[in-house]
């Protein structure tokens, strides 16, 4: 019989998060971010968090909400624009920032969840990203050694999921969510729709439930768009 991971909601999902912990948060920009868990983390008020996330949200949404309350001590990201409060905290030295090439960030999470402690990649060779890292040539091309990333908690967002923790993502909201789910000691998945066990076709599940420890159905998704870009019907 399938192992049930279902919890009541974000409060139960975030239970056990403590100050000083390392968290992973899925999403690319504001697309596919775990909105409900972030809101709960703001309520919890835990401090000195290290957050691993591709981006840092905007001033009033996503991880920007945790930044506003100064709950984050360190961000590990690939791109952190579009956030004035982030900039202020970074320039004043309140916030430590580790910038990582996006593909290396994704692979470091994947490695962390896959039992691979480190890997060589060409990305960043010859740049400041390579400082202090081992360099080795393969096929005559230099590569740098990047280490795996793991987290105390990983918070991810999916479109659909079942009580076994199996997840299906929608469109480009998948992004970092699957690798971060793999790399969390406790992975909390929030889904738009929690479906009955057996309702998901096993052929079409994107992330096996073994990587998920808790799952709940989120409510009131805001799903903000950062760059609404459209064609007007008149000119098209």
């Amino acid at each position: 019989m399938a192992i049930s991971k279902t919890v009541e909601g974000p409060q139960a999902g975030c239970a056990g998060v403590q100050s000083g912990m390392t968290l992973m948060l899925g999403g690319f920009g504001l697309c596919g971010i775990p909105e409900c868990s972030i809101a709960e983390l703001v309520k919890l008020g835990t401090k000195d968090l290290t957050c691993i996330s591709n981006n840092a949200g905007v001033d009033d949404f996503g991880l920007g909400l945790l930044l506003q309350k100064r709950q984050i001590r360190k961000m590990i990201s690939s791109y952190v624009g579009e956030n004035d409060e982030f900039e202020r905290q970074m320039l004043s030295g309140e916030l430590e920032v580790d910038l990582i090439p996006q593909g290396s960030l994704a692979e470091r999470c994947r490695a962390g969840g896959s039992g691979i402690p480190a890997f060589f990649t060409p990305a960043g060779y010859g740049t400041e990203v390579a400082e202090g890292k081992e360099v080795r040539e393969f096929d005559g091309k230099p590569h740098i050694l990047e280490s795996a990333l793991t987290a105390d908690f990983a918070f991810v967002k999916a479109w659909k999921g079942d009580s076994a923790g199996n997840l299906v993502f929608k469109a480009t909201a998948r992004n970092f969510n699957p690798m971060m789910a793999m790399a969390g000691k406790i992975t909390v998945a929030e889904v738009e729709e929690l479906v009955p066990l057996g309702a998901l076709d096993p052929n079409e599940i994107h992330l096996p439930g073994i990587f998920v420890q808790r799952i709940f159905q989120g409510a009131h998704y805001d799903k903000r768009i950062e760059q609404r870009t459209v064609q007007t019907r008149e000119t098209a």
């Binding site: 690319f28 697309c31 480009t172 903000r224 768009i225 609404r228 459209v230 064609q231 007007t232 019907r233």
Partner: peptide, 28 residues
């Protein structure tokens, strides 16, 4: 687009935009 799509098409018609479907520039 490196955020996770192959076969990217043009910008959507006004009203058809989907928050879950963006490019690496975060545009719909």
């Amino acid at each position: 687009s490196e955020n996770g799509i192959l076969g990217m098409g043009p910008f959507p018609m006004d009203g058809d935009e989907d928050a879950d479907l963006i490019n690496a520039g975060k545009q719909t």
